[in-house]
Write a protein that binds this DNA or RNA. Structure first.
Lengths: 187, 187
DNA sequence: TTTTATATAGACAGACTGGTCTGTTTTTTA
DNA sequence: TAAAAAACAGACCAGTCTGTCTATATAAAA
């Protein structure tokens, strides 16, 4: 998707800064000085800071989906592939750059009326839910479509709370507990 | 705790605006015009906007703890009092003023380095967890202290995800699913 | 080589922010 | 009634922010 080298560098730099310091705490001047490009160049590629925000969300989401898909695929088929979600999160948590859920935090920062960014995030979470649905379908022997969906939703909720709460409490007990509840659900 | 009528009015107005429109989107000028007080008066009661933020968090938290304690107490002893947490949330969700978790959203808005507000929120979540521990102790016949804590933490996680995700998806399925998983845990 | 597109640096506009200060008026207390 | 405390209005300050603009340099395409 990278339409140009310069554009990629902007998105990568902005993503790093947005995730580390927050959307509102990161000014466009910081983005341009950090990525070593001119302001006019930035506004040549993005019509507004909000547009960079969407590119940031897309960038993080795409990397996340790719990573987690690869990570789960490496496990033995069955419940392991589902529980791997929480092992992935555990690694993510231990990373020094872990800073919670970029999506939820970013949406919390933007004004209420900015529906576009909200919609983008909803779509991404929906995609993540679909990934879990695929995992459940493949790894658990469940007949009813409705039960698959329900199970996936519950795993999704557990995962999401594990991200947010491990970040908030600066401790990995939410990840461990969420994984444990998950295993109770799927076994 | 209301040290004065004026102070109370400031906190109530600021809380309403912070919760509805967000912390950064609400300026002190808006707070003073909405509450009909002078700017000097505001800065006579609070040394900075951050201080108003803490008062806001305290105000919302105190009301929440009081409400949820009263709400659960009204149910029959046993699992009902625990599941009532999610019924309370369902009512909260249906309220036109529902706007997610004020704490998580506010902390997401403030700069990384503002440790004070983070610490306040952690303390409040810890208090909420203690409330759940008390509920579990009272209503479930669990002997081991460690198992009580573990159970409470899991209920806490389910509740938190239900708040955040029902808000994000603008739908109450997270509340229903969280409640269902909770009942599986405690029965 | 000339043209065209895209990069550069950085000044600038204009709106908005949190917070201070002066001076006046009202309310409470003694 | 006199004194003290706390409210008022609002100008003002210093700084931040996004986004625009000018003018120049570079690199690719014709």
């Amino acid at each position: 998707m990278g339409r140009s080298k310069v554009r990629d560098r902007i998105v990568e730099t902005a993503s790093k800064l947005f995730y580390k310091n927050g959307y509102n705490s990161t000014g466009v001047n910081e983005i341009i000085s950090e990525s070593g490009i001119a302001k006019a160049t930035l506004y040549n590629h993005f019509k507004s800071k909000d547009d960079i925000c969407i590119a940031f969300l897309d960038f993080k989401h795409a990397a996340f989906m790719e990573d987690i898909e690869a990570f789960t695929k490496d496990r033995n088929e069955g419940v392991d592939q589902i529980l791997a979600l929480f092992d992935y999160l555990q690694l993510f948590f231990q990373d020094s750059e872990f800073n919670g859920c970029w999506g939820i935090k970013t949406v919390a920062e933007i004004p209420q009326n900015n529906q576009k960014i909200r919609t983008v995030l909803q779509g991404q979470k929906r995609e993540f839910l679909d990934l879990i649905i695929a995992l459940v379908t493949k790894n658990l022997k469940i007949d009813h479509q409705e039960e698959i969906k329900t199970t996936a939703r519950r795993i999704y909720l557990l995962y999401e709370s594990a991200v947010v709460e491990s970040h908030l409490h600066q401790n990995d007990w939410p990840i461990k507990e969420a994984k444990e509840v998950c295993s109770q659900i799927i076994i």
